[in-house]
Computed example of a mutant assay.
Amino acid sequence: MGSGYVRIIGKWQQPWKIKNSTPSSFPSVHQLRNIRNSEISRPINLPSSHSLSSSSSRSSKIGFLGWYLGMLETSPLITKSVTSSLIFAAADLTSQKIMLPPSGSFDPIRTLRMTGYGLFILGPSQHLWFNFVAKVLPKRDVITTLKKIIMGQAIFGPCINSVFFSVNAALQGESGDEIVARLKRDLLPTQLNGLLYWPICDFVTFRFVPVHLQPLMNSSCSYLWTIYLTYMASLKKEGRGECGG
């Protein structure tokens, strides 16, 4: 700039106009020094190790839950089937541990049968059944929930239990007549015992759980029920008149 101007905080002004500027608009050197010292002396608040670990734990939980829910959205059939197979495997291992005699040993083939049933039969069946029920009876009030429970006990329960006993008996090498005899012996008692357990589980499932999570809830309830089912499925053939683990 030419002569007759001075630079005041980034702007060129004529010297005779400086005295007309508001003094408060320009911090003094002393004020600038105080501001700089306060910024330097201000402590830096770093997160503690406890807060970091808590945050990391929450992130991992949210991450796993988010991943699982995402899998239910992108691959619902596979996710529900794998979940069902894992629950059936855990239930069978628990059943064997409870009923295993002192000199006995675990039967891995039996656990493999239960795992395959959960993966290839129960998981896909749950997926189709709960979607069908939600489409036929979309409401979630008490009356509609009771209708869903009745449908489950009258249709889904007998069908899936019949398939369960038949498949496991066939995989154990039983003939058609032996499978029919097993169904006559085990199916009705299983259904009657189920009336003491499943209506409560189904009421909670249909009334409060979203449709895409209902198979997970059903499989979780199946953990205790499967311990009983695996015991029933492991009974000896009807023609032998024997019972054992």
Rank of each mutant, 00 (worst) to 15 (best):
S54E: 11
Q191G: 03
A89F: 14
D92L: 09
L196I: 08
P189C: 03
G239N: 07
C159D: 08
F203M: 01
S81G: 15
L192H: 10
Y117N: 01
L65Q: 11
I87W: 06
R240Q: 11
S49W: 09
V167Q: 05
K184C: 14
I200V: 06
D186V: 02
S166G: 14
L100Q: 14
W198L: 00
K148L: 04
F156H: 05
I62V: 06
N193D: 11
T145L: 03
F120W: 05
F156C: 02
R33E: 15
H127M: 10
P27V: 11
Q96K: 14
S103C: 13
S234V: 03
P101L: 05
V142Q: 11
S55Q: 15
K148E: 02
P158E: 04
Y197W: 04
G176S: 13
N161L: 09
G66M: 01
L119C: 09
Q191H: 09
L77Y: 15
T226H: 03
R42W: 08
G70F: 08
D202F: 02
T230K: 00
S75G: 12
K147Q: 11
I9Q: 13
F64R: 06
H127E: 10
L137S: 07
A169H: 00
S95E: 12
S25K: 14
K97C: 09
E242V: 12
D186A: 06
P47T: 07
V204T: 05
G244R: 03
C159Q: 10
G63H: 05
D107F: 06
V167S: 08
D186K: 02
H212P: 08
D141G: 06
E39W: 12
N45Q: 15
T94S: 15
L46E: 12
G118C: 03
L119I: 04
E238A: 13
S84E: 02
L187I: 07
L100C: 14
T145F: 04
G123N: 04
V167Y: 06
N20P: 13
D177Y: 03
K17D: 13
V133C: 08
I149M: 07
Q13F: 15
T94N: 06
P43Q: 08
I227M: 04
R240M: 08
T111G: 03
A89T: 15
N161K: 06
F120N: 01
S24H: 12
E174Q: 12
L77P: 11
Y117I: 06
Y228E: 02
I143F: 10
G123S: 09
W67S: 09
S125D: 03
C159L: 13
L235S: 02
L183E: 03
T83V: 14
